[in-house]
Each structure stands twice: as C-alpha cells, then as structure tokens.
C-alpha cells in the first residue's frame, strides 16, 4: 500500500512545501511506454500521479491532451489498461489517482470501478464533468472502497457552490485556476489565488491548483498559496515533441525535476 492522499499532503506540509501532482493519460503512447514515462515522473519528484482515462470526447481538454488521448485510444487504451497502469506504478511506489470523464466510469459500473481501482492500489478519482448533484451512487461506491473523490471548483463558483462541492470531496479539492480548457499558458491566471483563498475559508481539505501550470517558476508561484500544484499538458507536450521514447523519458524527468524544485520554493 502506497501513501494515501492525506498522508502525502501531511508529509509535504511537514516539509513546508506543496505537493507536485503530475498527469499523464494511460496507454500514451502505448501501455508499457506510458508506465515507463509515469515511473520516470515519480522518480524525478512527482508526489501524486493522475492517470488519465482516455475518452473520445474530452471537452475540458486543449489540443495537447486531445491529441495524446487520441493516440492512446488508437493504441487500444481501455479502462483495464488504466487499472493495470495504476497497479504497476503503485507497485513501483507511486500514489496514484485516476482522472476520468464520467461516461467510461458509469459504463464500467461505479461499484466495479471503485472495487477494481482499490484492488489495483489506487487512492482516488478526479471526475471533471461529474457534478455533486449527479454523484449519489458514486459517493456510496467510493466510500465503501476507501477511494477518495476529487471534485473541482472554478473561479466562477459561488461560495455556496464551493461549500457544496467540498462537502462531497475527499483527498483534495481541485481548483481550476482559470476559466478554460487544459493547456500550457504563459501566465497562471490571477484568479487562482483568490479562488484558493475563498475555498480555504470553506474547507479544511488540501487545495491543489491546476490548468495552465507548465514551468518551475509557475510551480513556485502557485506553491506559495496552494497545497498542491497540478501539471498535465506540459508533460504531454514534452512527450509529443520527443523524437523517441528514451528522449520522452528524459524530457519528462527533466520537467519533473524543475517542477519539484519549484514546489519547494527553489
């Protein structure tokens, strides 16, 4: 059993830093290469891995993740590839959560998915298009298998809404830094600190900021006010731009080291 989300956040708090959360879709560019890339990420300092479940209609994602997910689907990425990826990276010591659009989980069955994920050693699921109102059966299934449920808040969320979301969330709250889709941006949105401040007032859960963080300097900036820094598209882009798998592994590790220094304020 690897560290739970709560244990990871307790550890980074003790170290007076933020957690680095890295995203990659499972099965990208293939199942085995995907696992190697994630393991490289973890060795280089990623604290929590978000394993993406590739979906045909990723309407919250920008061009980089869209094209990675299309590649993964062409290479045969199914929920079972995702669960197998979780199992293997957990065996290598990673704390893993799954990030998935709702339909593949509903299709798999909320009970079956929670049970299989717990069996694979996964700790949580981020569901970017599941609202608390629709989450009844999901809350029961995840609770019975000890799986954390990560919901999102956004700059447009009212305080009342943040409270509603936080009440069904466990592990950490995912604060979307900006109104938009995933993708590297030159600046982290100025809405992010305010959103974290408002969320902090309404929950004791750790708060991680995602969308648009791609460099060590940006990670350092976000780490100053958030408990976790989430980076996805920047990793994906490095892999898309790499000429081959060894170069991709090296590029992912290099970025992870830069970001890991950032979340430590360096």
């Amino acid at each position: 059993m690897t560290a739970t989300l709560a244990e990871v956040f307790a550890r980074v708090h003790a170290e007076k830093r933020s957690a680095l959360i890295g995203y990659l879709p499972a099965g990208f560019p293939s199942a085995d290469e995907g696992i190697e890339l994630i393991n490289a990420m973890v060795s280089a300092g990623v604290d929590i891995v978000e394993v993406g479940l590739p979906y045909s209609d990723p309407l919250m994602d920008g061009p980089d993740i869209q094209s990675a997910v299309e590649q993964a689907l062409r290479a045969g990425a199914t929920p079972d590839v995702v669960l197998d990826t979780v199992e293997q990276i957990t065996a290598a010591g990673a704390t893993a959560v799954v990030m998935s659009y709702w339909n593949p989980i509903e299709r798999y069955g909320v009970e079956a998915f929670s049970a299989r994920l717990a069996g694979a050693g996964g700790h949580g699921v981020i569901t970017p298009d599941l609202t608390p109102e629709e989450a009844g059966p999901w809350i029961e299934a995840t609770a019975s298998h000890g799986i954390d449920r990560v919901f999102l808040v956004a700059p447009s969320s009212t305080d009342e809404r943040i409270a509603t979301v936080a009440a069904v969330t466990s592990g950490f709250v995912y604060a979307a830094s900006t109104m938009g889709v995933t993708g590297a941006r030159t600046q982290v949105s100025s809405a992010a600190p305010e959103l974290v401040r408002r969320t902090r007032a309404l929950t004791d859960l750790p708060i991680a900021v995602g969308l648009g963080v791609s460099t060590g300097a940006q990670a350092r900036e976000v780490a100053a006010y958030a408990d976790g820094v989430i980076v996805g598209s920047a990793f994906v882009r490095r892999i898309l731009q790499a000429p081959d798998q060894p170069a991709a592994v090296a590029a992912v590790a290099e970025l992870a080291r830069e970001l890991a220094a950032g979340v430590r304020g360096n």
């Binding site: 309407l59 970017p128 109102e133 629709e134 999102l152 956004a154 700059p155 979307a176 938009g180």
Partner: peptide
Amino acid sequence: GGRFVPEALTAA
C-alpha cells in the same frame, strides 16, 4: 438529462 459539466459552467 441532468447536468454533467465542468464546474466552470455551473454558474453560467
């Protein structure tokens, strides 16, 4: 029916 959307759209 229902609403299965990113939280950013809930307010809208």
